[in-house]
Design a protein around this nucleic acid. Structure first.
Lengths: 234, 234
DNA sequence: GTCTATATCATGATAGAC
DNA sequence: GTCTATCATGATATAGAC
C-alpha cells in the first residue's frame, strides 16, 4: 500500500509550509514551499486542493483541539450548574474567550512566539469558521440564550459577533492597529493582562441593557432616525 | 505641459476601477480595469504604485470626508460642553461610531448599494488607517481621556481597539460571519437598528468597571452597574 | 492511488526602451 | 509619461511513471 508514502509527502509539505509560514507569513509562495519540501508543485494541489487548503490544513489540528477544549469546558460548566439552572453569562464568556485568546496568542504555531498570518485581523476568525468552529459557536449560543432568556435572538447573535470582533482586534492589535492609536508603545505585553481587559469589556458590552430601554440607566438616547439612510450633510 | 493628459489618464483609471469594484469587488483584475479604461496596464502602477494604491486612491476622498465629519462633530461637542467640562464618553462614542458605521454601510461607493470589499472584515479599518484616520483617532482618544480621567491610558487604548473590532464586525457581519452564528437569519437588515445594537454594546463595554474592581468608580460616573430587568445573574 | 513533469493561463509587479 | 516586454506567482490540466 502506498498510503504511508502519501502520508509522508503530505507531512513533508506541511512541515515545510509550517517552517516557512512561521518566518515569512502566509505570503510565502507555493514554489518556495515545494522547493523546501523537495516536492513537485502539483503535489500541494493534489493533497490540499489549493494554497488556502494547505493553510487550513496547518491550522486544522490546533483549531480542532481548541474546539474540543471549548466544548469540554462548556460541558463542565453545565454539569456543575445542574440541568435546571443555566450557566451564568459571564462564566460563558470567560469559558469561551480565554481559550480562544490563549489559542490565538500563544498556541499559534509550533515555532514558538510567531505567526504573522494570525496577526492580520480576522484571519483568526476565518480559520476558525473553516474548521468546524461553527458548531462550537452554536453550542455557546444556546448556552447564552439559556443564561439570558429575555434577550432577543437577534440581539444575542449580534452581541456575540461584536464580542468576536473585539477579541479579534485583541489578537491583532499588538501589531499595526495599536500603533495607530498609541504611537508611544507603553506597556510590555502580557497575555493575562490583555485577557482581563478584554473580559471586562466583553462582559460590560454583552450585559448592557437592551437598546431602546428608556428606564435602563445605560440606555442610549435614540437619535434622529432621519439620518438613515443616506448621506447627511458635508 | 502634459499634466492635463496625466490627470486625464488617472481619472479614466479611477472611474473604471470605481465602476468595476462596485460590481465585482476589489478582486477585479487590473487588466479588466485597464481594458475598461482603455489604458495600458502599467499606467496603474505608474499613477498609483500598485493595485492597493489604486484602491486606497478610490477611498481616499470619502475617508477624508469622514475624517472631516468626525473632527467637526467632535469640535461641536467640545464647544457645546464648554472648555471646562469634558464631553461625556457615551456622546463621544456616538459621535465617532455613528458616522463611521454610516460611512461603512451606506456611503461605501458612489455606485449605490454595494461595496463587496468593505464587507470583508477589517478592510474598513485598514483603509481608514491608511488615509489619515490616525490623527482623528488621536483626537478622540484625548477626548475620551478627558471624559474618563481615572481610566489608565493603557486600558483606554485597548478599549478603543476593542470597540473598533466590534464595529468592524458590525459592518462585516452581514455577509459571512453572521451565517456561522445564525444560519436562520430572518430579520431584515436595518442600519439604524444595527447601530443601536452596536452602540449599546460599545457603551456597556467601554464603561465597564476596570478589571479587578468589583464596584468601580468608573461605573459610578454613569450609573450603578445594573442590568436591565429580567436578565439573570449577579 | 500517488506523484512527477510539463504546459497553459490570468494575474500583479517591474525594468527598460521610447 | 507611456508602453513593451518580462518575470513570479497561483491555479489548473494532461500525460505518464510507479
Amino acid at each position: 500500500m502506498n498510503g504511508s508514502r502519501s502520508a509522508y509527502t503530505r507531512k513533508r509539505i506541511l512541515d515545510a509550509a509550517l517552517r516557512l509560514f512561521a518566518v515569512k507569513g502566509n505570503k510565502t509562495s507555493l514554489r518556495e514551499i515545494t522547493a523546501e519540501a523537495r516536492v513537485n508543485v502539483s503535489a500541494v494541489n493534489y493533497h490540499f486542493g489549493s494554497k488556502e487548503g494547505l493553510i487550513q490544513a496547518i491550522y486544522q489540528h490546533r483549531v480542532r483541539a481548541l474546539n474540543q477544549t471549548l466544548l469540554k469546558s462548556l460541558d463542565n460548566l453545565e454539569e456543575k450548574a445542574g440541568s435546571g439552572t443555566p450557566v451564568e453569562a459571564k462564566d460563558l464568556i470567560e469559558a469561551y474567550f480565554r481559550p480562544l485568546l490563549q489559542h490565538a496568542l500563544t498556541d499559534t504555531l509550533a515555532v514558538p512566539g510567531n505567526d504573522p498570518a494570525l496577526r492580520e485581523p480576522h484571519v483568526l476568525l476565518r480559520t476558525l469558521i473553516m474548521n468546524g468552529h461553527s458548531e462550537v459557536l452554536q453550542r455557546f449560543r444556546l448556552a447564552f440564550s439559556r443564561a439570558l432568556p429575555d434577550m432577543p435572538d437577534d440581539e444575542l447573535v449580534w452581541r456575540l459577533l461584536f464580542m468576536l470582533g473585539a477579541a479579534s482586534c485583541a489578537v491583532a492589535g499588538r501589531e499595526g492597529l495599536l500603533n495607530a492609536l498609541n504611537p508611544m508603545h507603553s506597556e510590555p505585553f502580557c497575555p493575562e493582562s490583555l485577557f482581563q481587559k478584554l473580559l471586562t469589556f466583553l462582559v460590560g458590552g454583552f450585559l448592557a441593557p437592551l437598546p431602546g430601554m428608556q428606564n435602563a440607566a445605560l440606555a442610549v438616547k435614540v437619535a434622529s432616525p432621519q439620518q438613515y439612510p443616506g448621506i447627511a450633510g458635508p
